[in-house]
């Protein structure tokens, strides 16, 4: 952010000198936009030769405990390492901050060149060759992500459909404003929940267009691991199909760039379990409702005065987008 100096610049320079071979300091430190629950900073480590592009992920203010659903930064670093070993494209984690470093919780990883802004990925010529390949790649990547042995995972919350439903029902109840369409979705989701015998795996939890680093060659990295959990692997395949993440390309259900068939084929070819399209749709419904309720409660920060920005206020008027999507999914008129 312009005009903001990073209070950890000096300490970060020391960390890099001490723990990265050949590094003599840092330059170009700047806060990147996005990521409300965690800070993301870009910087370069200087060396005798070429500088090394890096990212610092850090808890806001250094020490804020993770929210109820966020995994915490050391867990995030561990998951990125495990995913990398399983063949998921991720940035290499260079160093996990220790208490004696004095700049709080966080980690340093490679900064990968590419684009995360969904609208650019869907419209710019630069990505024209990549777009037709992305849905299949997403399927392949998710198959690898879901193949990670549960024995190797750090402790994570277990969140099958029932607990997701309970969580969002409580949020909606606390909000108090009536939303008949969300009630309808909650009822449908309760009545149609996957059986208790559903095999659980690691779930990324926010695998969608916007959290994928894309280059002209395709997916370069999977980002934002902070709400990873244990659950139904079909959750990840459903979430990326939510219409909100198609950014206007409604006929390309996977992220606005591809078809479900391509994603499912990639998933199965890369060793994933046989895809159950009905269960993927179930999670698309759940995801659509989840995003709608999140838009609704973002207004709370505006109403309480914590954030009086017009931007914050206006988000509340986007939750109806998910209501029309839910009706099209659950109560089509034809």
């Amino acid at each position: 952010m312009s005009g903001e100096t990073n209070p950890v610049a000096a300490a970060l320079g020391e960390v890099v000198k001490k723990h990265m071979k050949g590094a003599s300091g840092i330059t170009g430190l700047k806060r990147l936009s996005g990521g409300a629950s965690q800070e993301t900073w870009a910087f370069d480590a200087t060396t005798d030769g070429e500088s090394i592009p890096l990212i610092l992920r850090r808890a806001p203010g250094g020490t804020r405990p993770p929210s109820e659903t966020a995994v915490g930064l050391s867990t995030e670093a561990k998951l990125i390492e495990l995913a990398g070993r399983a063949g998921v494209p991720v940035p290499t984690v260079r160093y996990v901050l220790q208490q004696e470093d004095g700049i709080g919780d966080g980690f340093i990883m490679n900064r990968i060149a590419g684009e995360t802004i969904a609208r650019k990925i869907l419209r710019d010529d630069e990505f024209a060759d990549a777009r037709p390949k992305l849905a299949r790649q997403c399927g392949e990547i998710l198959a690898k992500l879901h193949s990670i042995s549960r024995d190797t995972l750090p402790p994570l919350r277990v969140s099958p459909a029932e607990s997701e439903i309970a969580q969002y029902r409580n949020i909606l109840k606390a909000h108090g404003h009536p939303h008949p369409v969300f009630e309808l979705a909650l009822k449908w989701l309760t009545d149609n929940a996957p059986p208790a015998t559903t095999a659980h795996t690691l779930v990324h939890g926010d695998f969608r267009n916007g959290n994928l680093m894309i280059g002209p060659d395709g997916v370069r990295a999977v980002l934002d691991w902070e709400i990873a959990h244990i659950g139904d692997p079909m959750e990840d395949l459903g979430w990326i199909c939510v219409n909100s993440w198609r950014f206007g390309n409604i006929d390309q259900p996977v992220g606005g760039f591809g078809t479900r068939e391509d994603m499912f084929a990639g998933y199965e070819a890369a060793g994933g379990a046989k895809v159950d399209p009905e269960r993927v749709k179930y999670w698309e419904v759940l995801g659509t409702m989840k995003w709608g309720i999140m838009c609704t409660i973002m207004v709370t920060a505006f109403k309480t005065g914590a954030d009086r920005s017009v931007e914050r206020a206006a988000i509340g008027r986007r939750s109806s987008e998910t209501e029309i999507d839910l009706l099209r999914l659950l109560a089509p008129r034809q």
């Binding site: 008949p180 369409v181 219409n243 198609r246 206007g248 390309n249 409604i250 008027r317 986007r318 109806s320 987008e321 209501e323 029309i324 999507d325 009706l327 099209r328």
Partner: peptide
């Protein structure tokens, strides 16, 4: 009801 909400909130939304 929902079509009315969208006609006010986001009339350009793809789903609408």
């Amino acid at each position: 009801t929902t079509l009315t909400k969208l006609s006010i909130d986001q009339p350009n939304y793809s789903g609408y």
